[in-house]
Amino acid sequence: MKKDIKFETALQRLEKIVEQLESGEVELDKSIKIFEEGNELVKLCLEKLNSAEKKVKQLSKESDGTFTLEDFE
């Protein structure tokens, strides 16, 4: 699973999993599989939410029209 999962994507997938599990129509094998997938998604998202602060960058446009990013402050 991608580490840089988007919250939108994760939420959509999780909501789908909950719906499938709640419908009771999924076979046990599969339900445990998607349940695991759901847990993994929650874990990744919580990790991301608690991740360390990223460095703030400062954007500047060079005379040749290119952009450079350097640490702000």
Partner: peptide, 15 residues
């Protein structure tokens, strides 16, 4: 997220 997780838990426990 944790709410969805417990929803999954309840569903699979029910199953």
């Amino acid at each position: 997220f944790m709410g969805l997780q417990s929803q999954m838990q309840r569903a699979i426990s029910g199953n």
